[in-house]
Amino acid sequence: MSAIPEGILYSKEHEWVRVEQGICTVGITDYAQSKLGDVVVVDLPKVGARLEYMKPACSIESFKAVSDVYSPLSGTVVEVNTEVSMDPGVVNRDPYGKGWLFKLKPERLEEEIKLLLKPEEYRRLIEGLSDA
């Protein structure tokens, strides 16, 4: 069973967002990492890059596939987690903690945050997927 912590929001593409003091931290969910298998390469966005709501922000590779990570909010990248470039496996081991990917300064937080899923809604989404 995938972990779905409280206190953060989720996208339909299996990203999570933590909003703290106007800065949003983004990563992929436990469900996403378990489906990908070993994360072996993470291609992070550049600091200063402008990301758009639910457009590809960066990519994550496992042995089997390359997957886009979508930005759950529009905004500008203010920090990236260089630790995951050096040790991509941390995304598998600690997807909601040390495996975070990037932080952004949101542009349209108030309207876009309404489009994200609460933990209970995300739980229902993945339970509805045949292989959850």
């Binding site: 298998g37 070993d38 072996v40 496992s62 042995f63 089997k64 598998n92």
Partner: peptide
């Protein structure tokens, strides 16, 4: 196991981790 379709066979692609 995690499964894949391999030429019509439902086969394990990995159990814990491919690297492991």
């Amino acid at each position: 196991a995690h499964f894949i379709d391999f030429y019509g066979w439902e086969m394990p692609v990995w159990f814990n981790s491919i690297e492991r």
